[in-house]
Simulated scan of single mutants.
Amino acid sequence: MELFKQILASFEGSIPNDSKTFAAIARGAGPEEVSACAASEGLHALAGALFEACEEGLAQDDAPRPLSDVVDSRLREFREQIPPDCRTAQLIDAKASLEEISEAAESEGLHSLAALLAEVEQGRGAD
């Protein structure tokens, strides 16, 4: 949790007080929830830093979580926030490829989800 606290400290003052991200931090939410809020509000630098920490397993208990678990968790969180009849929701429900979901999200104006998935795809390409 120390890394999580350090990341939040480094973004102190740049998170709007009336945002979902600020509220999540204030109530002591975990790194995954804060990251999802940040991504949904366009705070991509914070979301990316927390995503990286979660991917490495450093934010919670030093036990690495598989990237697929982190991505699945994020997709479920986003899925709950979007209408069931949009193409992105349908692709998430169908467990389509991240590329397909990302393209649909971008075309439907879900830019924070598309950005998050682009980061994941870039990370996979670097491995």
Rank of each mutant, 00 (worst) to 15 (best):
residue 84 P to A: 13
residue 23 A to P: 14
residue 52 E to T: 02
residue 89 A to I: 07
residue 2 E to C: 08
residue 78 F to A: 09
residue 107 S to L: 02
residue 101 I to W: 07
residue 80 E to V: 12
residue 85 D to W: 07
residue 83 P to Q: 11
residue 89 A to P: 04
residue 28 G to F: 00
residue 91 L to F: 09
residue 23 A to R: 15
residue 53 A to N: 07
residue 2 E to D: 10
residue 36 A to Y: 11
residue 55 E to S: 06
residue 89 A to V: 07
residue 52 E to R: 02
residue 12 E to F: 07
residue 36 A to T: 13
residue 105 A to C: 06
residue 4 F to Y: 13
residue 95 K to R: 15
residue 48 G to C: 02
residue 16 P to A: 03
residue 36 A to C: 12
residue 39 A to L: 09
residue 40 S to D: 03
residue 127 D to C: 08
residue 92 I to D: 09
residue 44 H to G: 10
residue 61 D to Y: 06
residue 54 C to T: 04
residue 43 L to P: 01
residue 34 V to L: 04
residue 113 L to F: 11
residue 37 C to S: 05
residue 30 G to D: 15
residue 122 Q to A: 14
residue 55 E to C: 05
residue 83 P to N: 10
residue 22 F to R: 05
residue 80 E to H: 14
residue 2 E to P: 06
residue 21 T to F: 02
residue 19 S to Y: 05
residue 126 A to D: 13
residue 55 E to G: 04
residue 93 D to A: 14
residue 88 T to G: 03
residue 108 E to Q: 05
residue 110 L to K: 13
residue 121 E to A: 13
residue 56 E to V: 01
residue 32 E to S: 07
residue 8 L to W: 01
residue 81 Q to V: 12
residue 13 G to M: 00
residue 97 S to M: 11
residue 81 Q to G: 09
residue 46 L to I: 00
residue 45 A to C: 08
residue 108 E to P: 02
residue 44 H to A: 13
residue 28 G to H: 00
residue 123 G to Q: 03
residue 69 D to V: 08
residue 119 E to W: 14
residue 17 N to P: 09
residue 39 A to H: 05
residue 95 K to C: 13
residue 16 P to I: 02
residue 29 A to H: 08
residue 54 C to F: 01
residue 95 K to D: 14
residue 91 L to Y: 06
residue 50 L to T: 06
residue 124 R to S: 12
residue 117 L to P: 02
residue 106 E to S: 15
residue 51 F to H: 03
residue 87 R to I: 07
residue 81 Q to L: 12
residue 87 R to M: 07
residue 2 E to H: 12
residue 67 L to W: 09
residue 114 A to W: 07
residue 93 D to T: 14
residue 83 P to C: 08
